[in-house]
Design a protein around this nucleic acid. Structure first.
Lengths: 205, 205
DNA sequence: ACCATATTTAAACAAGCGTTTAAAATTTGT
DNA sequence: ACAAATTTTAAACGCTTGTTTAAATATGGT
């Protein structure tokens, strides 16, 4: 049982659910308190302000999101295997948390709401060794040479967009949840094949 | 001069700017009125309510966004040319309106705020003949066979994500506006090459 | 058992929200 | 030029917002 949550934790978890679903502007302190089954004043008692609670939630969501998939680059595998597993994990994570990247992007877009310092998360990403590995692979002619930012966008686009753009695609194609999940299974395969095919340089000239 | 805008038009244009930038929940009627240089009461005088003004703005933004690029499919060109021009136009449009897809997706995600009927826009899309052309090309073995929704997501991902995810990428890579624009030029080329290479079936076995 | 501390509560605060009102100003038709 | 209709205004409406207060309750150490 996960009943043994403290008041502070209950509020944090409720806030995560509500913030991710509705955004900072789209919900009230009272709604978060209600979701946690607590009094409104407790939000400020434990977290000082709605803004500060949000900042805390945002940072943990951001870290969960980035780290859940990048771990694979610490493993001892070929780059191609890592890439395949990374995409697999990304789709796995996003299937159960499809609204997280949209949340992160939307909130970062209105950055004046809180000051987000990307350095801690950047250091953790760098600690996985992704960047060195990719740079090395480029020098060795294993993968296509391009700015790592372009490469990152290419991969993120094909992993995240199918979930970020889900509301749009569901509206235009009138799909229910099951149909969309099925589409994502296929999408993952197409994306993997396309990205691997494009990024990795074929040896047999 | 574009000074000859009526009060109604001034409010509509101001609302578009503010809504797209901050979202429905992120702004007030008073902010829109101020942006238009008008009295608050005029918003409701001309548009009945904030919600109705939003609905109107959303529909026009949606149509502009979808139609600005799909027109190319009405032209008499090879499918590959159309695809290349489509991607070109998409990057062109999104370079000057980078926040529009994020706006559309974010607002659709919280769909209980207004009832959006996708049928009018869908009919216009179908009138361009894209779907028939793609289906025909699949039957003839010109392009890879897959559900058109998967195909649409594949293309949208690689065109829209670089702009939708701009806040995230700018934060993680500490890029200024000029650097990002430059990256998008390159991104467009990679994406075009990758998509054409993957989707179109090579003839020389 | 008691007291100090920590937690939780209901109530209230000013400020901002979307919207309405009714009067003022302007435009229009004749 | 005048009256009717339209447009614009300032002010107010009731309600919700984030936050604070002070009293009530629960907890823990001695």
């Amino acid at each position: 049982m996960s009943k043994e949550l403290s008041t502070e934790e209950k509020i944090r978890e409720a806030a995560k659910r509500v913030f991710v679903e509705k955004g900072f502007d789209g919900c009230s302190s009272r709604e978060i308190a209600k979701e946690a089954g607590m009094n409104v004043a407790l939000v400020n008692y434990y977290f000082c302000s709605k803004k500060q609670l949000f900042k805390l939630v945002f940072e943990t969501v951001m870290e969960d999101f980035m780290m859940s998939t990048l771990e694979v680059f610490k493993r001892d595998l070929s780059l191609e295997s890592k890439m395949r597993i990374f995409i697999e994990r990304e789709y796995e994570f996003l299937t159960s948390h499809p609204d997280i990247p949209r949340f992160i992007i939307s909130e970062l877009a209105r950055g004046d709401k809180f000051e987000f310092d990307p350095r801690p998360i950047l250091e953790k990403i760098e600690a996985t060794g992704v960047f060195e590995e990719l740079t090395k692979a480029q020098k060795q002619g294993v993968i296509r040479k391009m700015d790592l930012t372009n490469l990152m966008i290419l991969i993120s686009a094909n992993c995240q967009y199918p979930f970020v753009g889900k509301p749009l695609m569901k509206h235009l194609n009138k799909l229910d949840e099951d149909q969309y999940t099925e589409l994502m299974m296929l999408q993952k395969q197409y994306v993997t094949e396309m990205l691997i095919g494009y990024l990795f340089i074929q040896k047999n000239k």
